[in-house]
Each structure stands twice: as C-alpha cells, then as structure tokens.
C-alpha cells in the first residue's frame, strides 16, 4: 500500500482512457438502437390506437390501459367498474412465480449450502453440475418436463410401478405443473448466489455460536441465515423476476386455463385477437412491476450492508 492513493494494481484503471468512447461506442449503438429505443417505442405504442389485424394507428389513446383496468360493458358505454380479468392474470402470475420461488428456495438453499461446504477442489465440479441444465435450451427443458409429467409419462409409470399410487396423478395442465416448470427453469439461479454467499461465510462464527451453547438449528437461524441473507434475496429475485414474465412453462405445462402474463402478451401479437397497444401496455406494466421488485431488493441489500 506504499504510496497510498497513488499505488497501482487496481484492476479498474485508465490505460485506455483516450480510446474509451471509441471502445464503448459499438455497445452503446447496438444496445441503444435495438433494446433501449425499442422499449421507449413500446411505451409510445401503449398510448396509440389499435389497428385490427395487428399494428397501430398513430393516434393518442388511453384505450389500452383503460381496457386493462376498467370494464365498460360490452359496448363500452356502461359506467366503468374495475376489470378483474387482467389484474387477475397478473395476480396469478405473481402467485405462480412466488410459489416457484419458494420451492426453489426450499431445495436450493440446502443444495447451495451443501456445495459450499464441500472441499474446495470438488466445489467447482458441483457448481458445474448444477449449472449445466441452465445452458440447455429452455424450450427443450420445458418440453422434457411435459414429457415426464404426462398422465402416461415416465413419472406416473414409475410411481405406479413401485406401488405408491394406483392410477396416474394428473399433473399436466394444473397450477402445480406450471410452478414445477418455473421452479425447474430457474433453480440454478437460486443456488448460485446463495452458494457464493455461504462460500464467503466465515465458519468461525458458527463455531462461536456453538461455543455459546446454540444448537445447530439455532446457529443456522440466528447466525448463518442473517449472514447470507443478501445471497438468499438475490437468489429469490433471480427466480421470481424471470418466472413472472415467462411464457413457455405456462404455455406448455399450464394449458388454456392457467394463463399468465407472458401468454397474455404473446396473444396480442400472435393470435387473431391482436391488439398491439394493449400488448405494449401489458408489457409496460410487467416491466414496471419488475423494476419495482428490483428497486425494493436493491434497497434491502443496501440496508443489509450497513449492519
């Protein structure tokens, strides 16, 4: 540290500061043009008038948001009352994503903890094993889940084979199937941040707790959990947020009854019901929801650092 502020060795430095703008320009252009500007255009589209058979008419309109929140009767001239259809779809999405997050936490925490307490050489191998499925096509994973869970599928064959059940359990096209699918899709996201937190945890704290007469479960609850809380929160966010807007799991595993936001949005751009402004408005509401969750968690994490 000799030389204080002057000492080099920091990984973030200014060797190429003259070329900085040039170096960053391609990423600004590509992401600006093809992600940031499109999101703003989506915002604009949500305030336009719908064209039948897809597209928009360039006329300002609040119809999309109005349709989302209010019911004005079949001909649009009744006194407005709250429209529950879409709010319920959002609510169901939150509930499904929340349930998947809880499943992922219940399985993911012990897994992450177990991996983090393996000898250092084998840890990487365990982490690798847990992450491989994430890199397999989400579509294929969801299709595989559907194949496994079918009434005549291998899972039911297996359960009937060992005599746990007499007739197939009906899982496909239930809420539970969707939760299971979401859980399966994003489970590695729960494991990784918790693993990182536990790996950094100083186990002499647990020893100190044990020395002060805490039982193992008291140690877990009172000492370990508070210490790794940021990792747990990060894991929950990483499962909850993508689950909320997911399309494949509800579409392939949930069937027509178990609609979620993703399917609602997709329908506006694909099916004949095509209503682009409404789809854009629903996307904006989903995006806002996600940003609120991220902001709340960021605040929570910042608070945690002060302790």
């Amino acid at each position: 540290m000799a030389g204080g502020a002057a000492s080099g060795g920091k990984a973030q430095t200014d060797t190429y500061k003259e070329a900085r703008t040039l170096l960053l320009l391609p990423s600004w252009l590509v992401l600006g043009f093809f992600v940031l500007i499109p999101v703003f255009m989506m915002l604009i589209y949500s305030f336009l008038t719908k064209e039948f058979r897809g597209g928009v008419i360039w006329e300002f309109s609040l119809a999309a948001y109005d349709q989302f929140f209010f019911d004005r009767g079949l001909f649009g001239d009744d006194a407005p009352s709250i429209e529950w259809t879409y709010i319920n779809i959002f609510w169901r999405s939150i509930w499904q994503a929340g349930a998947a997050t809880i499943f992922a936490l219940l399985i993911g925490f012990p897994t992450a903890y177990f991996i983090a307490t393996r000898p250092p050489n084998s840890r990487q191998m365990w982490v690798f094993l847990v992450t491989i499925p994430y890199w397999v096509n989400l579509l294929i994973r969801t299709v595989s889940m559907k194949f496994l869970l079918r009434d005549q599928g291998p899972l039911n064959d297996f359960l009937m084979g060992i005599g746990i059940v007499d007739s197939p359990i009906h899982i496909i096209n239930t809420d539970f199937a969707v939760q299971l699918g979401l859980f399966y899709s994003y489970l590695p996201f729960m494991v990784l941040p918790i693993y990182a937190a536990v790996e950094r945890y100083n186990f002499s704290l647990s020893e100190a707790a044990a020395d002060l007469y805490a039982s193992k479960w008291q140690t877990l609850r009172r000492v370990l959990l508070p210490a790794v809380k940021p990792g747990v929160i990060a894991g929950c966010i990483l499962v909850f947020v993508p689950s909320l807007g997911s399309f494949l799991a509800p579409d392939l595993l949930g069937g027509a009854k178990n609609f979620m936001i993703g399917s609602l949005i997709e329908e506006q751009f694909k099916g004949n019901a095509g209503n682009w402004p409404f789809g854009a408005a629903a996307s904006m509401i989903l995006l806002s929801l996600v940003l609120i969750v991220l902001m709340l968690s960021a605040r929570q994490q910042n608070k945690g650092e002060g302790v």
């Binding site: 540290m1 000799a2 030389g3 204080g4 002057a6 000492s7 080099g8």
Partner: peptide, 17 residues
Amino acid sequence: PSGCGKTTLLRIIGGFE
C-alpha cells in the same frame, strides 16, 4: 512509512503518474 509519497514519486519518475 506507507502513504508518505515515495511510491508516487517513483511512479512519476517511471512515467506512470
């Protein structure tokens, strides 16, 4: 001692600062 400026001076002579 640490922070006395000796490394800064050396880095100035070397051209890093």
